[in-house]
Every structure is written in C-alpha cells, then in structure tokens.
C-alpha cells in the first residue's frame, strides 16, 4: 500500500468516523433537546422550520360548505419554492369557470410585507395587490389572507400550555399571542405533533377572547419523506361555515422552474 492509497483509506475511515460522530451528536442533541422541556417558542420554531421540500406542486380541491350543507367546489394548483428562508408561491384557479384562469403570485420579502400580484382574465393585465389586509377572506373561504401566509415564530409570544393528544398523535399544546397587534386574532392555540412537528390543530380567538375558528388536519400522510396534510378543514364557529381542502396531487423537489414565479408567467399562463 503506497502512501497515497494509505492516505485515501485513512481518509475514508476518518470520514466514516466523522459522520458517525456527527450523527451521534445530532441524536444526542435531539435526545437532550426533546428530553429537556422545550419552550413554546422552540416548538413553534421547529414547526416553522420543518422541512417541507425545496419546492412543491399541489393540486387541491377546495369545498366551501355552508351550515345548511350546500357545497361549492374549487380546484386550484399551487407551486411553491424555497429561496433561502423566503418562499415564492404561484396559485392558479382551474375550476369553476367563473374563476378559471385567475392567478396569484406572492413573493415573501425579508422584513417587509409580501409582494403580491393578481391576474384576472377579465382585466387583461397583472395587478399589484395589497398584502397587508390579512383579515379579509381568501376567495370567500374560511381562510383569511393571514391564515394563508406563513407566520414567523418571532411575531408571537409562545407559551407551552400542556401536552395532549389529537387523533393518534401526541402533541404539544402551545398558546401564541401576537406582538404589537400584528394579527387579527388575540391568540392562537396550536396542537403540534411531538414526533413530526406538524401543526395538527389550531384554535383562533378574536380580540374579545372568543374562540371563532378552528383548523384541523383530517388526514396526514408521509409523501416522499415529508409529512403532508392531505385533508384539512377550517371551520367558522360563528356562522357554521367550513372550508375543506383536499390534496389531489402532490410532488416535491421536482426542480420547479424559477420562471413560474415571475410576472411574465402570471400573465402568460
């Protein structure tokens, strides 16, 4: 064995040892972390930073159901892509015909409100829209624009209330109170899976402290190694209206083209 190959072998062995050590350290850190009491903030940061793919494509069915049980169905396609810690999203409605072709583009900005554009076929042009009116309903669903956006952990003060279970999952129950009136809600209480850090249920409280809405995951699947809520429901507890969202198709890490998140694509597609 010459020196060169000897170095190579030792190199390989060293690398293997290093990897094992690193894995062990990560596991140890995990054990320590989860073994110790996690704070509410840490739990919500874990949930926020949970890996959900570098990019993703979803085809969703949205059902709007009023308290009498009357249903309205919508189909939409969603593309998202991570750019560091910022996300770009493109949404296109494909059903029913009165909103077919309506498209929406959103770019997260660092320390600034999102930049959002809307394309309405009847208008024939892309229109810049306000992203700060978070309390408005998203296309008449029970989701507001605030509910549709990612909420960064630093925007709230989090307190771990207790541990509980939701469906078959053991959960942390975390209360989040918005800082400086940054939300339409006075607080949220979230059920976060202890094993997967998926937010499984959220209760929304209005400024008077009354519970007004509830978000629940009805079905959760692991797709391409990523925990994916495939059926969710948002229920308005005041008027009995609810919105069900079902994932019909999902693809992760397909190398979604950057061009999809451009104004050009918004007006051309």
């Amino acid at each position: 064995m010459d020196n060169k190959s000897s170095y190579a072998s030792w190199g390989k062995i060293s690398m293997a040892v290093l990897k094992i050590t690193l894995i062990w350290l990560v596991c140890l850190w995990g054990v320590l972390l989860y073994g110790e009491d996690l704070t509410g903030r840490e739990i919500m940061e874990e949930a926020f930073n949970r890996y959900d793919g570098d990019d993703a494509y979803f085809k969703m069915e949205m059902k709007l159901v009023d308290k009498k049980g009357n249903e309205r169905k919508r189909l939409l396609e969603i593309y998202t892509k991570d750019y560091g810690n910022l996300i770009k999203t493109f949404i296109k409605f494909i059903f029913p015909p009165d909103i077919e072709g309506v498209s929406f583009l959103s770019w997260e900005n660092q320390d600034k409100e999102d930049t959002q554009y809307l394309y309405l076929p009847a208008l024939g042009r892309v229109r810049r829209i306000v992203s700060t009116q978070k309390n408005l309903r998203f296309v008449n669903t029970d989701f507001t624009y605030e509910d549709m956006q990612r909420r960064r952990p630093e925007q709230d003060t989090h307190t771990l209330l207790r541990e509980s279970s939701y469906k078959d999952y053991n959960c942390f129950v975390v209360e989040s109170i918005p800082k400086k009136g940054s939300s339409q809600y006075s607080k949220r209480i979230s059920w976060v899976g202890k094993d997967n850090f998926v937010i499984l249920k959220i209760e929304f409280y209005n400024k008077k402290g009354k519970k007004i809405k509830e978000y629940r995951i009805k079905e959760l699947k692991k797709i391409a190694g990523i925990w994916t809520p495939t059926e969710v429901i948002m229920e308005d507890l005041i008027d009995g209206h609810r919105t069900l969202m079902k994932t019909l198709k999902v693809k992760y890490n397909q190398g979604v083209d950057d061009a999809i998140f451009s104004i050009r694509h918004l007006q051309e597609d």
């Binding site: 229109r127 810049r128 829209i129 306000v130 992203s131 700060t132 009116q133």
Partner: peptide, 11 residues
C-alpha cells in the same frame, strides 16, 4: 406606475 402604500393600492 403601480404600487401599494399600506392598505391602499396606488396607480
């Protein structure tokens, strides 16, 4: 031109 200023759209 087109932009947003707070909760208002301007063009």
């Amino acid at each position: 031109f087109e932009t947003v200023a707070g909760n208002y759209g301007l063009r």
